[in-house]
Structure formats: structure tokens, C-alpha cells
């Protein structure tokens, strides 16, 4: 059970402010999810390069690991360190080699990968984490964030949201799925692997699988209405947009605000109250069992 925020900018002019806006939104959701927090920000991407977000036990461990990774892939890496996470930009041709190298290490883990997506998540109070990761200084076109009140799975970094669903894809969830054990078994049979007992990871894996099988994001979400049982509000980030889906009973709260400049999502209005121009925004609740998606061309 949780708080969700999402912000999608329609125009470039607010891009330098994205992190600051998202940070304010996330901090308001502190009470809904005091166990852990996470967010994904879609910043600049470079042609032919990919960004890997890794987490480690300490900054020293991260620096040591990055030096090793640079030697392993044979290129000098561009790196940004933030608290327990590092974003590494490298040539796309080296992505698989780097992934294998990271997977072999026990002290670091891959959190997310994408041309533009950077993904941060950690155990602790959302308010403090937003500061530690310096979210307010990040720029980008869109981002999603999550504060977690764990229901049945462990309070761990890996159990924090967002869950990455594939390159530049990630998902946050509020609610609880009632058939995730069965769906997980089906997906494992299909070759997916899971790192946590978390129901949201199953939802994320489900969407990855559907997309891998050829579905569009919208089709995958529409099909999830049939295959996933329980209560959920999903917010999904992609390279160029984001999507929202609520279960057919619309059990968990959701409110959205749209202006000429942005589309914003919050579990409660409080999370949107400080956004610029909110007084004149079109404020609405997403309807149950309806996929909403925004793209920036």
C-alpha cells in the first residue's frame, strides 16, 4: 500500500524543474509509504549509448566496481554517483557485456537500464531519500515516484518500487494483487526470473512478458485487466511517455491534473497541490479499467 506520483511534461520549458517538482510531490506522500521510496527520471539520452543504474552497499564499493567495469568493457565510463546508486553511461554495444559483469558481482546490483531512464530506490523515509538522491536537482521530461507501505513482502531495497520492466520501462503500484503467486509461476515457466516475493514485481514482469510477446504497452495493460486479480493502480513509465491503469473496482485512490504544460498523477490531491498552475489545471480521476497513456512525439 502506497503513495504514487507521476509527472509528464508536455513542453521542454519546465524540464530543468522536473526533479524539484517530483521531489515535492514525493515528499507529500511520505505518510502513505514510510518504508521505502523510489523514482525513475527520464533525462537526456545519447545516441548509441545506454544508461545503467546500479546500486551498491557504499560509495567506495560503487567506485571500485565501476573502475572494474570500465576495465572489463574497455571504455571510459561516464558516471554520476548519488547516495547508494550510480548511473553509468556506456556504449550500447557494451550493454550486454556490462550486464553480465554486474550480474556476477554480489555487492552491486542493476536497478534499471534505458536510453534515458535513471532509477533510484532505497529503504527509508521518502523525505530523506529524496534529499540523499538529490532528486530536486534532476532534469528530465517525465518521472514517476513511489512511497511504500509494505503489505506482505519484505521491506528491502529490491522490494522498493519502481520495478523496471525492460529497457526504459518501469512500473509503480498501489494496491495488492490477489493472484500474484499463480501468475509468477506462469511467468517463471515462460523463463522470467524474479528477485523478490513482491506482487508488483510480478505485475512488472507480466508487462515485460506481454511486450516481449509483441503487445504494445497499451495492449499489455488492457490484457492485465483480465490476468491480474486484486486491487491496483499502476503508473508505468516508458522512454517517451507514461500510462495509468486502475483495477475495475478502482479500489485505490488516484487523481490527475492536466495543463498545457504537464500531466501529473498523485494518489491524493495533496501531492499535486504545489504544482505551478494547479489552480487552472483540469483535475480528474482516471476511470476504472481504462488505460490512459501520454506520449511525447
Amino acid at each position: 500500500m502506497c503513495g504514487i506520483v507521476g509527472l509528464f511534461l508536455k513542453q521542454p520549458k519546465l524540464e530543468p524543474e522536473l526533479g524539484a517538482m517530483l521531489s515535492d510531490m514525493l515528499v507529500v506522500m511520505n505518510d502513505r509509504g514510510p518504508d521505502s521510496a523510489g523514482f525513475a527520471v527520464y533525462g537526456d539520452g545519447e545516441r548509441g549509448r545506454v544508461k545503467l543504474t546500479i546500486s551498491g552497499t557504499s560509495e567506495a564499493a560503487l567506485r571500485e566496481a565501476i573502475a572494474g567495469l570500465a576495465r572489463a568493457v574497455g571504455e571510459s565510463l561516464s558516471v554520476t554517483l548519488r547516495h547508494t546508486h550510480a548511473v553509468i553511461s556506456l556504449s550500447a554495444i557494451n550493454e550486454q557485456k556490462a550486464r553480465r559483469w554486474i550480474a556476477a558481482r554480489a555487492d552491486i546490483g542493476l536497478v534499471g537500464a534505458g536510453k534515458r531512464m535513471e532509477l533510484y530506490k532505497e529503504v527509508g523515509l521518502p523525505e530523506r531519500l529524496a534529499q540523499q538522491f538529490r532528486l530536486a536537482e534532476m532534469a528530465g521530461s517525465h518521472g514517476i515516484g513511489h512511497t511504500r507501505m509494505a503489505t506482505e513482502s519484505a521491506v528491502t531495497t529490491r522490494g522498493a518500487h519502481p520495478f523496471s520492466t525492460g529497457l526504459d520501462q518501469c512500473l509503480v503500484h498501489n494496491g495488492s494483487l490477489s493472484n500474484h503467486n499463480g501468475v509468477r509461476r506462469v511467468l517463471q515457466h515462460e523463463g522470467l526470473s524474479f528477485e523478490t516475493e513482491n506482487d508488483t514485481e510480478v505485475a512488472a514482469g507480466y508487462l515485460s512478458w506481454k511486450i516481449r510477446e509483441g503487445a504494445s504497452l497499451k495492449e499489455a495493460l488492457t490484457q492485465s485487466l483480465v490476468d491480474l486479480d486484486g486491487f491496483y493502480t499502476f503508473v508505468v513509465g516508458t522512454e517517451s511517455g507514461f500510462a495509468v491503469l486502475r483495477d475495475p473496482i478502482a479500489c485505490k485512490p488516484a487523481v490527475m491534473a492536466e495543463t498545457d504544460d504537464y500531466v501529473a498523477f498523485g494518489s491524493e490531491y495533496r501531492a499535486l497541490a504545489m504544482l505551478p498552475g494547479i489552480d487552472k489545471a483540469h483535475i480528474f480521476e482516471p476511470a476504472p479499467a481504462t488505460v490512459y497513456a501520454w506520449e511525447r512525439g
Binding site: 491524493e268 495533496r270 499535486l272 497541490a273 504545489m274 483535475i283
Partner: peptide
């Protein structure tokens, strides 16, 4: 009001309250 919850709940008096802005739960 900033979307805060439980604003003006549990009143029991013939008074008028004007809230200028959005309220929470």
C-alpha cells in the same frame, strides 16, 4: 487547504465555513 484531510470534520454548530481551494479525504 492544500488537499489536507479531515478539514472541518465533526462540526456541531450552525456556522458557515468557506474553504478556498481543494480539500483531501
Amino acid at each position: 487547504p492544500g488537499g489536507k484531510h479531515a478539514i472541518a470534520c465533526g462540526l456541531d454548530a450552525p456556522v458557515a465555513i468557506g474553504i478556498q481551494g481543494h480539500v483531501g479525504y
